[in-house]
Design a protein around this nucleic acid. Structure first.
Lengths: 142, 142
DNA sequence: TGGGCCACCATGGGCGTCAATGGGAACCAC
DNA sequence: GTGGTTCCCATTGACGCCCATGGTGGCCCA
């Protein structure tokens, strides 16, 4: 059961740090992930995070395409230009940089949302809203 | 006959715990379920619980879609972001976290409702009401 | 058949541990 | 130096693990 599940909202402190929920840190620890790959999500106004293997997976996808294609170029623009490596401090917190802040519209609180093989950082209200919308649009589930 | 049947209402104690009805615990024990997958229901204002195989079923549904599509992402937002693993304490109780409380509108009492292959946690009055409504609509049809 | 014993379930609470958060001080780069 | 980080340490409240109690129903036996 080594998945990122559930969601939780934590406060950003005066130094701009937030605690990553211990549930998520436990998943990272089990996978022996030291450095996190963070990218600006392709679908939602949220920043996604996971171990480096996700970046490698993205890169393999690009590698399998024609390097001069518009598709491959746009993909690289997103996963490389829209991604950074981050690491947690000794207490399991991460610095909420402008890279995250601006893209997700985050100010003083962050909602962490599990997404199975990765997790995301959302502006709390935006998360609530998107989840409610998804539930409303729900089709064949249940 | 390993189904979740009937319903019962239990009180939440000062530490925020409720006993899961022994009838339901017996079903879980027979299925050798240790960890419960709990998700915010897609239809009702209730939290559903079942063994981990339900999550796997949901994930297979997502796996059959384009991972970059809005649909797949929204579905993941519900089953991953709106789901969590929980476990019972030594006495068969579970902690009623905000994850459950806020979504179901639960305050001091919980109604457990059997749903065959899973069971749900409801705010008692909401359950009564929804059940009454279902009964009325049903008789109107037949 | 009545009484009493016992098992089980729902519930309460103590206490140690850990997570989330706040803040000081050393460190680094420009 | 000045501002931004990183590395520690402290605090407080929440949670996990354990043991205790009361109430109810079932079962056995006289």
């Amino acid at each position: 059961m080594n998945r990122f599940l559930s969601h939780a909202t934590n406060r950003i402190d005066a130094k701009g740090r937030v605690s990553v929920p211990s549930m998520f840190r436990a998943v990272l620890a089990r996978s022996a992930v030291e450095e996190l790959y963070a990218w600006q999500d392709f679908v939602f106004p949220a920043v996604s995070m996971a171990g480096p293997e996700v970046l490698e997976r993205f890169e393999r996808m690009i590698g399998s395409q024609d390097p001069f294609s518009a598709e491959a170029n746009k993909m690289s623009l997103l996963i490389h230009g829209g991604g950074v490596f981050m690491k947690l401090d000794g207490e399991g917190r991460l610095l909420v940089t402008d890279f995250i802040r601006d893209f997700a519209g985050i100010t003083d609180r962050v909602t962490f949302a599990g997404r199975g093989d990765h997790f995301q950082l959302w502006e709390p209200a935006a998360f609530e809203q998107m989840q409610a919308q998804a539930r409303k649009e729900r089709t064949a589930i249940s």
